[in-house]
Amino acid sequence: MLRLPSLAPGLRVGLYGGSFNPAHAGHRHVSRLALRRLALDRVWWLVSPGNPLKDRSHLPEAAARAAGARAVAADPRIAVTDFEAGLGEGRLGIRYTVDTLRWLTLRHPDVRFVWIMGADSLATFHRWKGFREIAARMPFAVIDRPGYTLKAMASPAARALASSRIDEGAATTLADRAPPAWVFLHGPRNGLSSTALRAGTIRS
Rank of each mutant, 00 (worst) to 15 (best):
L150S: 14
S164Y: 10
A74N: 14
A170K: 14
F83D: 01
R127V: 03
L11W: 10
W182D: 04
G147W: 06
P22W: 02
R91L: 15
F83P: 00
V80M: 07
A181V: 09
S31Q: 06
R145L: 01
G169E: 10
L106H: 14
A170Q: 15
L185M: 09
F131P: 14
A162M: 12
S19E: 07
T173G: 08
T172C: 12
R95T: 13
T149K: 14
P139S: 11
S48A: 12
T124Y: 09
E89T: 13
G93Y: 09
H24N: 06
P49V: 10
V183K: 03
A160W: 04
L197N: 05
W115V: 01
R107K: 11
G147N: 06
T195Y: 07
A135T: 06
P156F: 02
T195G: 05
L15P: 01
L33V: 03
V142D: 01
L35V: 05
T100Y: 04
A63H: 14
A64H: 11
L40F: 01
I78K: 01
T172S: 15
R102M: 10
K129L: 14
V30G: 00
A25P: 12
A85M: 09
L174V: 03
R56I: 14
A178V: 13
N21T: 05
L161M: 13
H24I: 10
T195Q: 09
S6H: 14
A85C: 11
G88W: 06
P180W: 11
W44N: 03
A25R: 15
G93M: 08
E61N: 11
Y148K: 01
G200C: 11
R70I: 10
L104T: 10
N21Q: 10
R127C: 10
G130M: 07
T124C: 11
D167Q: 13
L101C: 08
G10W: 07
V13R: 01
A199L: 15
F113I: 05
Y148G: 00
L11F: 11
N51K: 10
Y148L: 00
P52C: 08
A152P: 01
L4K: 09
W103K: 04
E89N: 12
R132D: 15
A25C: 11
R65Y: 12
V142I: 07
R165C: 12
T97F: 07
L87G: 06
D41R: 07
T195E: 05
P49D: 11
L101M: 12
R132A: 13
R77K: 13
R70P: 09
L7W: 08
G118Y: 01
L87F: 06
W128P: 03
I78F: 03
A119H: 02
L35N: 04
N21Y: 11
A175E: 03
M1G: 13
K54V: 10
W115F: 14
R28Q: 09
V98W: 13
R77F: 02
R203D: 12
D82M: 02
V142S: 01
A152T: 05
A135Y: 03
L101Y: 09
N190C: 15
D55W: 10
V111G: 06
A171N: 00
F20Q: 02
